[in-house]
Design a protein around this nucleic acid. Sequence first.
DNA 1: CTGTTAGCGCTTTCAG
DNA 2: CTGAAAGCGCTAACAG
Lengths: 335, 335
Amino acid sequence: MATIYEVSELAGVSLATVSRVMNDSGKVTAKTRKKVKAAMRELGYRPNSIARSLASSRTDSVGVLVPMFYGPFYGEILSGIETELRDAGKHVIITAGHSDKASEEAGIEFLLSRNCDALILHVDAVDDDYLKKLCRESVPIVVIGRHVAGFEDHCINLDNELGGYLATKSVLVLGHKKLAYISGPLWKHDAHDRLQGHKRALMEHGLEFNAQLLYEGNFREASGSRGLEELLRIGQPFSAVICANDEMAAGALGVARERGLEIPEDLSVIGFDNVFFTRYFRPKLSTIDYQISGMGQMAARAVLKIVYGDKDLEVQNMFQPTVVMRSSVTCKTGP
Amino acid sequence: MATIYEVSELAGVSLATVSRVMNDSGKVTAKTRKKVKAAMRELGYRPNSIARSLASSRTDSVGVLVPMFYGPFYGEILSGIETELRDAGKHVIITAGHSDKASEEAGIEFLLSRNCDALILHVDAVDDDYLKKLCRESVPIVVIGRHVAGFEDHCINLDNELGGYLATKSVLVLGHKKLAYISGPLWKHDAHDRLQGHKRALMEHGLEFNAQLLYEGNFREASGSRGLEELLRIGQPFSAVICANDEMAAGALGVARERGLEIPEDLSVIGFDNVFFTRYFRPKLSTIDYQISGMGQMAARAVLKIVYGDKDLEVQNMFQPTVVMRSSVTCKTGP
DNA sequence: CTGTTAGCGCTTTCAG
DNA sequence: CTGAAAGCGCTAACAG
């Protein structure tokens, strides 16, 4: 591999000049520039990014931490991030945190040790103080799916409370009075906020939240199944079940089918996320939709703006969810 | 950020010694080691991986190129790769190639410029010669989902021909004689090989391949829909349709439903990949299964073995698919 | 077992 | 506008 040194020799100029044409920095005569470029081409020169990083203390790479790779959700987030960043000539180093505190912190250390210029984090387990400390002591970070007080413009968020509210509201307006709720793990911000929205909608309709009709799941399909089973078992009546994500709604749908419950006649079901595979559900699932990959894209833009000084980039920090009504929800009829 | 220099000063030893304890290389007294470690801890020292890379010309990072991030398929591959590599302390730099020649080559350049120690590639568009040249001139590469002659131990592959054969065979043994086939883009190796397997199975049963009953799709759902529509339109009878992946099978299933065709009574359908969301199909889709994330894991192991000298690591280069019979296929009855 | 000494390839003042 | 020179933080011979 040719080095800058050989280029400078062949072009008959100094190292510094080669560096200048490479970076379009400083003033260089058109003529000199041409000579240098020719030399570069002749030697098939490719700058060594490691050496460049060491000298400039910029790596042009941003570290990304997500809970996991598979599943429809994070794939879309990653896609949004990578596309935006790569267009800007930045590299993306990705790692998984598995929603586990030790693992998330290790992942962050991992990225930091790699001298990333910035970090984009979708973390569940680490606490706000840790993030704030990180913000202060290390490279800039952008957080997806979480509100960190005082760092609002470093956060890309979905209004989960509103989503929970809308889901519930859209069922209430159809006449349902007894609602069950299958939540995510309540220590997670998104799960917590969605439930808050649910409660707000109930309150607005003069209904009391009934803790017995709440089942705390883990966002996975099996917990949706267990959730509905449990809710049916305790014998409290309800005509609709709100699920905090589509996977759990899938589980609930499965149990309903087993039990011979007609959806939506006997039970209305609504999910959250509008992941692509809900298209295969029968009946088609009503759910809450929002721009998943858009959130990844915005996180990337925030980095571009904050770290690389792309001043006039528009960043949308908060995303609004909307209701998608399909056929798993219907009016409450009968008693 | 503390440097190795400060550590050496505080510990009262030389740079070299600090480097030694850091890398567990060379012999260092337990006592000295302890002193150094204490100094490191006190300063919160974290080695600068960039400097380390420049000096050692190893980056401990491997570049990964996949066609895209979303979809169930690549998420699992990535997951397999990242888990294995991270356990070995290596970084993963990921980028997308979009099944486009220029884009794939740019992605590879991109990773190369980042001085990756090795590359794991799932490429569709670049040709074998390019890959061979790469193998020769740059860092070691491992290729997933493709056979490159002469580089067998650098390839992680699924036996697609066998998969196509098994899918077809499993329908033939049930008495079907007229089969339609919806393929992927035939310039892609996997699509091509699956079709070859299909033909072999037909031949084995003394049946002629009928080119009119072949529709070339693009692996996406919509092309499965179009495919079945087209096949029905031309009026050649068939009692089963083999789809080269599950997405296209989903499309075919949708069209069948619209047309009032009963599955499997009027038409048997089989897919390929056994992606997780087939669980939501009704009827349940028969398909071809194989270890997707296992292939990612093996690619990572191959890298560990080839590049980082992990000699006793087992690498499985070829994966065998199996048939998963569910309820979208039945015996051929009637004429 | 430990220290000395060159670099790795590039950026970046500071002079000229 | 161009060149010289001093590192960036660490590794890897080579001595001792």
